Simulated assay, not measured.
Amino acid sequence: MKPRFDGRVALITGGGTGIGAATAARLRDEGAHVYVLGRRKAPLDAVARATGATALCADSADPVQVRDALARIIAHHGRLDVVVANAGGFGLGAIGDTTDEDWRLACRANLDTAFVITREALPMLLESRGAIVVVSSIAGLAAGPDAAGYVTVKHALIGLARSLARDYGRRGVRTNAVCPGWVRTEMADGEMQALMELRGIETLDEAYALATCDVPLERAAAPSEVASVIAFLASGDASYVNGAVVVADGGATIVDVPTLAFAGMGFP
């Protein structure tokens, strides 16, 4: 079979680690010319060496830097077909513990990056009748503890994806959102370290096992598993999928929380 992205050009924000890096590898394997964009040069260069992607060091929340990055893509390839808005992070803490600076940082890292990159890329995507995939989280569907900024902006990203799908689907640009649960990334490892300290757990594997013990699949995802969902939504295989929110969480969000205490008792 012909690779699904043969001759296509893709741009991935937050492309230096985790889901972004895995998506770069997946799209490259399927024939795409891939650009990974982020603020940290070293991890971007490492992804470029490992996958054959092209590194673009820029802040995806800065319109001027984004326009310069897009101009480089167009100068080299003359087109852009896929944007994966994956940059994110920050926003931990309850509202009462969240400073103005913390709030602005969460909004900039997650929502502003997706808004700016999609807005600036739209003219190219309209020309190519391309696809946008916005990476949100199951925190965009339900609230975890002490993560007010993160929860708020991940909810907002779903609204952004739906607005893009509503306004530009009729003009040939499809937009969909992906909501991963726990994924074994550097960022999640950091959260597991906190859990290890809190619960006296000695290894990351034990921490992930505890964090996912009530997930039906009983494990966290590998970044490549989320990348495969992103690749599907960005491909022609999803040609009639627009405005969808695809949950990739091992079943975490289908669990009826009030019945957890009855697990193993045959509760109906």
Rank of each mutant, 00 (worst) to 15 (best):
A55T: 09
R67K: 14
D97F: 01
L126W: 07
A21H: 11
A22R: 01
P63Y: 00
C57M: 11
D45T: 01
H76E: 15
G52E: 14
V64A: 12
V66E: 14
A21N: 09
L44N: 05
T23H: 10
R108G: 07
H77C: 13
G38D: 09
C57G: 00
A121K: 02
P123D: 05
A25H: 08
G96V: 01
A75W: 10
L44P: 15
T113W: 12
F90H: 11
T51Q: 10
R40Y: 10
N86Y: 05
G78T: 03
A55Y: 13
I95Q: 08
A25E: 15
Y35A: 07
V84A: 07
L80D: 13
D102Q: 10
V116W: 13
R79W: 13
Q65L: 00
P43A: 00
H33V: 12
I132R: 09
G91N: 04
A85F: 07
G89M: 06
R49G: 13
E120Q: 04
L122A: 03
A94V: 00
I74R: 08
A42I: 06
L56Y: 04
A106Y: 10
A48E: 14
G130S: 04
A109E: 12
A58P: 14
C57V: 15
A75F: 07
A121Y: 03
C107L: 11
A22M: 12
E101A: 05
G38H: 01
G93V: 00
R39T: 06
T17L: 13
G93D: 11
A106N: 09
E127W: 01
A121H: 03
T98A: 07
R119A: 05
A106F: 08
G38N: 02
D68E: 15
Q65C: 02
C107T: 06
A21M: 11
T23C: 07
I73Q: 01
A114Y: 07
R26Q: 14
G16K: 01
A24Q: 11
L125P: 10
A114H: 04
A71W: 03
A32R: 00
V36A: 02
L126Q: 08
D102L: 03
T54E: 15
L126Y: 06
L44T: 03
R67C: 13
L27G: 05
R79D: 14
G31V: 04
V64D: 15
A22L: 10
T23P: 15
T118W: 05
V135C: 09
G88E: 10
T118R: 03
G93Y: 02
G38A: 02
L125R: 02
I74E: 15
T98F: 14
G38V: 02
L56M: 08
A87C: 05
V34A: 09
G78L: 06
P63S: 00
L70W: 08
R72N: 11
A22H: 11
L27Y: 09
